[in-house]
């Protein structure tokens, strides 16, 4: 029998482990005297809701919390608009803001358009529905456009080569080496295509007008898009 100084629990444990007194003291120390108590669990010691509805609600919230903290996505999130502006990675650098750099792009584009539109234009420049569909699906990077009609008077007359075609705007570089972002909404753009057939030298170029309001899609999406007639109250 131990002396009466020992706590009662410890003496009990010694009884349970007669052969191994260190084991008994260890167990006592770890699991009784210095047992860690999780206070966090204690704070939730509100009385459990007896109401069925409240119980269901608690269950639901607990499940939600678990889900949120269980598997954070490992994919990188896309940049927000603010971050893009701050980083400036989509801006065109100063050295690249020269009209001469994009002139060859323009000639490339004209060649590309000629490829697409081979044989689409009749004798006097008339074209059908199919041509319109091809043009809508075409890529416009490198096309020289001029803003012909816009709700904002100061944008009318801006002329330049398209360097970027976003969902809502055209980014254009003008002859004066200025970059202009022109929103497509409420705008009409005009561009010219020299006559495709080489047989008609000296013929006037084909002039086409593009209504920006109906064109507000990213270039990639436009390829497979079927354009439906849109109400044009603006005009």
């Amino acid at each position: 029998m131990s002396t009466s100084n020992e706590p009662f629990a410890q003496s009990l444990l010694h009884l349970a482990h007669p052969a191994d007194p260190t084991e008994a003291t260890r167990i006592y120390k770890e699991k009784v005297a210095y047992r860690p108590i999780d206070f966090r669990k204690l704070t939730n010691s509100t009385p459990k809701a007896t109401d069925a509805r409240a119980r269901r609600r608690e269950l639901r919230l607990a499940r939600k919390q678990k889900k949120a903290s269980s598997k954070p996505s490992s994919k990188p999130q896309p940049l927000s608009a603010r971050q893009k502006r701050a980083l400036g990675i989509y801006d065109i650098p100063k050295e690249a803001q020269k009209y001469e750099i994009y002139e060859p792009l323009n000639t490339l584009w004209i060649g590309y358009i000629h490829e697409i539109l081979k044989g689409s234009f009749g004798n006097n420049g008339t074209a059908g529905q199919a041509t319109a569909a091809k043009l809508s699906a075409a890529d416009f990077h490198g096309c020289e456009v001029e803003v012909v009609r816009n709700r904002c008077p100061s944008r009318v007359g801006v002329k330049g080569i398209v360097v970027k075609d976003t969902k809502m705007t055209f980014v254009i570089i003008t002859r004066k080496n200025e970059i202009k972002h022109i929103p497509k909404e409420h705008s009409v753009f005009r561009f010219e295509i020299p006559w495709p057939d080489k047989t008609k030298e000296g013929a006037e170029p084909i002039v086409l007008e593009l209504h920006g309001s109906n064109f507000m899609f990213r270039a990639a999406e436009r390829m497979n898009k079927k354009f439906k007639a849109k109400a044009m109250d603006d005009l």
Partner: peptide
């Protein structure tokens, strides 16, 4: 309205321009 949007000159709405 059509001419104004094509003209590119800054102006204001006329007094009797109608709702649109």
């Amino acid at each position: 309205k059509e001419t104004y949007e094509k003209a590119g000159l800054v102006g204001r709405q006329a007094a009797f321009g109608g709702r649109k």
